[in-house]
């Protein structure tokens, strides 16, 4: 009973999201965070999800990760409905400082999830840890504690932990939002190279349009809350990308403008219908309750 051993035929989608809806119900009020999301991610794809702040991106990701039950709709991963965190999935959170165990060394942090896989022998486990740390460029600090490392290095540890887990799909929730620009560029290239080398499927959530276009094969543009998919942009940039050349190419600019236009339209639509644009933008943490629909498209 180990779905990670399921063979991938590569024809059907790895992840299928159909009519996903999520309403948070609190005391006397309910908030519709996600209205109607339908999309599919094929095996081996790198898909970026971009949307304005407070667009329910994190809600979407938590539903896919099996951390939140959707209100309605279907989530199918590798042919099986998602009912809890699936075994073949790894998640990298935005809050690197809080997702690593501060009482464990870098090596122990990467190794702990592997210890739960009973099928792994000890030498194999250590090999996976060593390879993963080397792959993210942290082969020389296995004995350090996370808090002794910079933010970028901590996020590399989280990435190594995910890679060592050998997931079929890797979810990343704005993983580089809290690191400085230079480190961020390095980490983006690291994600691209890991994806190309390992053939893992990646769903990368971000609010940064440039990042989404630079990283993805496809960019899903989400509307403001309550969320729907506005557009599914295919990124036809060459597979080999580099920070300077790719970002300054004409095609990058066009794609960026296309996505940017969609998001602006999403915001306008939101503001026209609800008249609360500024409030919606400020409230990145939790979407405001509203009865008015997003009236775009």
């Amino acid at each position: 009973m180990n779905p990670t051993d399921l063979p991938q035929d590569g024809t059907g989608p790895l992840l299928d999201v159909r009519a996903l809806r999520k309403v948070y119900t609190g005391r006397g009020r309910s908030v519709e965070a996600v209205r109607d999301l339908t999309f599919a991610v094929g095996a081996g794809e790198l898909v970026c999800v971009v949307g304005p702040s407070g667009a329910g991106k994190t809600t979407l990701l938590k539903c896919i990760a099996g951390l939140l039950p959707p209100t309605s709709g279907d989530l199918v991963l590798e042919g099986a409905p998602v009912q809890g965190p699936p075994p073949g999935m790894a998640v990298v959170f935005q809050e690197y400082g809080r997702s690593l165990f501060p009482w464990m060394t870098v090596q122990q942090n990467v190794e702990l999830p592997l210890k739960q896989k009973k099928s792994l022998t000890r030498p194999r486990r250590q090999e996976l840890v060593r390879d993963a740390l080397a792959a993210v460029g942290l082969g020389d600090v296995p004995g350090a504690y996370p808090w002794q490392l910079s933010g970028g290095m901590q996020q590399r540890v989280a990435l190594a932990r995910a890679v060592a887990y050998e997931p079929h799909i890797l979810l990343m929730d704005e993983p580089f939002a809290a690191v400085d620009a230079q480190t961020r560029a390095d980490l983006e290239d690291l994600v691209r190279s890991l994806w190309q080398r390992l053939g893992v499927t990646i769903l990368f959530v971000t609010h940064d349009i440039d990042e989404a276009v630079y990283l993805g094969q496809r960019v899903l543009v989400l509307s403001g809350s309550p969320t729907v998919v506005l557009d599914d942009v295919a990124i036809d940039l060459p597979a080999e990308r580099d920070q300077l050349g790719t970002r300054s190419s004409a095609r990058f600019g066009e794609l960026r403008a296309q996505v940017f236009g969609q998001i602006q339209r999403a915001k306008r639509g939101w503001s026209a219908s609800a008249g609360q644009q500024s409030r919606a933008e400020e409230d990145a943490a939790g979407p405001e309750p509203t009865d008015s629909p997003v009236g775009t498209r």
Binding site: L67, P85, M89, A90, V91, F93, R98, P113, K117
Partner: peptide
């Protein structure tokens, strides 16, 4: 910490561990 709790759920860290 909530993030750490979710990390454990994602990576199947349960029970005594």
């Amino acid at each position: 910490d909530e993030v750490l709790t979710e990390t454990c759920r994602c990576y199947g860290i349960r029970g005594p561990a």
